[in-house]
Design a protein around this nucleic acid. Structure first.
Length: 468
RNA sequence: GGCGCCAUCGCCAAGUGGUAAGGCCGGAGCCUGCAAAGCUUCUAUCCCCAGUUCAAAUCUGGGUGGCGCCUCCA
């Protein structure tokens, strides 16, 4: 397994801290609104990573947090006159529903900020004790960036002189403008929490470091808390830089041995924004496109590259996924017997084990589909070939989450039962006309079928239809 | 202004020193009553310039053009 380490900026062979075990932490959503395509991309990338790691023989412990303490949540709650839990519960549930539609498996652990305060308090206290944090007169506690020699080595940033000297207008007591809040002292009702440091709220960066210590860290892990830390490319600075500093200074280890950052999703070449009115939220995209098609499309480009979402490309992806399902239809009814390794499986996994080379993986799949179709076209019975193909496709489902549906239903989503019944009648009439070589009638009926947005195809197994 | 990423066929996109994967679209053909589906087949020398090398899309330098982060952000 090779992983491009976005901090060291090279592709490195992955060596886990503990034999056959991987700890993976990914920054999850702040639950104050519906999830957008960017959330989907990140969740998909790390879902794929955990599947590949698993296929590589690792036991994977995957954690993705839910940020349920945040100023935007509080603002929304106040605007709507409800308590924050009402907001966070609603959007946590919505997030889970959206992710499920995309075939994303739930991580092993989904810690919430509100349930991780104990670990955060511990970390703040450690930072204070070790002289890496200080309290100012209003009760806020800041991380002292100057006290960490390694600060900014993660994002390879250089702090310019202006930044060093400037004091933030409102917080003259901050030693350095780069210093960030670990604890914000506040008194406003239900949105503050009791702590050993008084009433307040934790700083955003703190929760990830604390959750990692609480849920993923094992002793004796060679100087690192976890194996892999992931998130969107925008999080490298300041979020991950600050996480790393907190962990480094409050414990005796670095936070992660490998870092992975996924690229951004743009829409029609524009940065995503609600005002553009394009499919911004996953739930809106799901109204128009099948969840699995979205999954396939969003995963079809390398995870580090920026992704430009547009309908034309999505349709091309759909056609590609269609081919997988058509082969599945051809082989329908066969049981998957063997779990044996095949040359195909090995090739597929080795492509994905190379820093998730999805393009190569998809080309291997296309090649397999063509080969099987060709053999099925040109000769009669191929029991062995069919079995192997079923076996291979089961592997694609497991590793990539593609082809998980019933192949007939896949092509018929969005057609109601009444229409299906009508189509059945029309097809029957057409087949009767065909038998009597009344091609004028049969073509007329086909046109009528087409008017339902449905394409029919005659096969040796009968006449099937697909939604266009 | 600081730091960084990218530039491969009409479109999407692998390949990162050894002579350009795959998909979509398009052309031709096989199959079909005709279609659809499937299959076969055809279509690029890699933004520009200079350099290193026996050899470069792949390394170096310089251009040009996109883009990201530096404030909340997946």
């Amino acid at each position: 397994m090779y992983i491009f380490d976005s901090v060291k900026k090279i592709k490195r062979e992955f060596v886990s801290l503990k034999e056959n075990e991987v700890s993976l932490y990914v920054c999850g959503p702040t639950v104050y609104d519906d999830a957008h395509l960017g959330h989907a991309k990140s969740a998909l990338v790390f879902d794929l990573l955990s599947r590949v790691l698993h296929a590589e023989g690792y036991g994977v412990k995957y954690a993705r947090n839910i940020t349920d303490i945040d100023d935007k949540i509080i603002k929304k709650a106040q605007d709507q006159g409800v308590c924050i839990k009402e907001i966070t519960d609603k959007y946590t549930e919505a997030y889970h529903a959206d992710m499920a539609h995309l075939g994303i498996k739930r991580p092993d652990i989904e810690p919430k900020a509100t349930e991780s305060l104990d670990a955060m308090f511990l970390m703040i206290q450690n930072l204070l004790d070790r002289g890496h944090a200080y309290k100012i007169s209003n009760g806020d506690i800041y991380f002292d960036t100057a006290s960490d020699d390694e600060y900014l080595t993660l994002s390879h940033r250089v702090q310019n002189e202006d930044e060093k000297q400037n004091r933030v207008a409102n917080s003259d007591e901050k030693k350095n403008s780069a210093d960030f809040a670990l604890w914000k002292s506040v008194q406003d009702g239900d949105v503050s929490f009791d702590s050993p440091f008084g009433k307040g709220r934790p700083g955003w960066h703190l929760e990830c470091s604390a959750m990692i210590e609480k849920h993923l860290t094992c002793k004796d892990t060679k100087g690192y808390a976890i194996d892999i830390h992931g998130g969107g490319a925008d999080l490298l600075f300041p979020h991950h830089e600050n996480e790393a500093a907190q962990t480094r200074c409050s414990t005796d280890h670095e936070i992660a041995a490998y870092w992975m950052h996924n690229g951004f999703v743009n829409i029609d070449g524009e940065k995503m924004s609600k005002s553009l009115g394009n499919s911004f939220f996953i739930k809106d995209a799901l109204k128009v496109y099948d969840g699995e098609v979205l999954r396939f499309y969003l995963l079809s480009t390398h995870y580090r590259a920026n992704f430009n979402f547009n309908e034309e490309d999505l349709l091309a992806s759909k056609k590609r996924l269609d081919k997988l399902y058509r082969l599945k239809k051809r082989l329908f009814g066969l049981e998957v017997h063997s779990q044996t390794d095949t040359a195909f499986k090995k090739k597929l996994l080795s492509a994905l084990a190379d820093d998730l080379n999805i393009s190569l993986a998809l080309s291997i799949i296309d090649e397999m589909i063509s080969t099987v179709n060709e053999t099925l076209d040109t000769a009669g019975k191929h029991k062995e070939l069919k079995r192997e193909a079923m076996n291979d496709m089961a592997y694609i489902e497991e590793l990539l989450g593609f082809g998980i549906k019933n192949p007939f239903e896949y092509f018929q989503t969005g057609i109601d039962a009444e229409t299906k019944e009508r189509l059945k009648e029309l097809i029957e009439s057409r087949n009767n006309a065909k038998k009597e070589k009344d091609f004028e009638t049969s073509d007329r009926l086909r046109d009528e079928i087409l008017s339902y947005g449905v394409q029919i195809m005659d096969t040796p197994q009968g006449t099937f239809w697909e939604k266009v």
